[in-house]
Design a protein around this nucleic acid. Structure first.
Lengths: 121, 121
DNA sequence: TCACAAATGAAAATGATTATCATTTCCATC
DNA sequence: GATGGAAATGATAATCATTTTCATTTGTGA
């Protein structure tokens, strides 16, 4: 059993609490941290085990790690230039909760992304 | 532009309307169909484009294809057994539309999934 | 210092998916 | 029936995230 390298968690926080393993790795490299990709993966898995971060999936299937407990937000993404805006999802939270209750689900989480073409494109 | 090979759709139906590309391929092989993996992928993509099947993700990120009705809906998925319920997302439609408008986005689409543990698990 | 367990990371393996590209099948037209 | 071009097909190679392997390094208690 390996414990999480604290620099991984700190980098995930700095990334806005929302990133893939590859992104965390690249970010750490850019910041001059000496760390291997393997350790990044191991640390993130360990954080998921300890329920410190959530494991979600992007549309293409890539794993993304999200800090738990953090008041999470959603994204508005431009399909053309990739520009991303963080948005609030109060309506979604309520919707997810009530839908889950209606069907007897518990331990509920959700994902929601909006995509389109931004005004610059 | 390639159209879907009808045998792929028919196999997906026979598989219970819920399978990965690899599974559809293996199933067709077992049944003696002469078809290439490439064609299976292409056909499934085309079916997704035509909104004849939905593209979801397993826990491990593998793409699974699922027959669905033609109305736009969302999913409530059990993280444990994979059981899926189709749900309405009226609130989401409005939320996505207004958020996109607020930020000047056009040609807007969205994804939203709720996941949790179902009552049987 | 010594020994040993845990952590690390480079490199190879895995497995799904996508891209390439030559070949085959369709179909309309002659 | 022959012909020509467009679409479909599929074997193979490439891609990319993720996992495994395994040798090396680091930390720690005796």
């Amino acid at each position: 059993m390996s414990r999480s390298n604290p620099r991984v968690l700190s980098t995930l926080e700095r990334a806005g609490g929302f990133a893939s393993a590859q992104e965390v790795y690249k970010l750490m490299q850019r910041e001059g941290e000496k760390i291997g990709l393997t350790t990044v993966y191991r640390s993130l898995q360990s954080l998921v085990n300890d329920k410190i971060v959530d494991l979600l999936r992007r549309e293409d299937g890539e794993a993304i790690y999200r800090l738990c407990g953090e008041h999470h937000h959603h994204h508005l993404v431009c399909k053309n230039c990739g520009d991303t805006v963080e948005i609030e999802g109060g309506a979604i939270e309520k919707w997810a909760k009530s839908m889950a209750e209606d069907h007897g689900f518990r331990d509920v989480g959700h994902t929601a992304e909006i995509f389109g073409i931004c005004s610059k494109c």
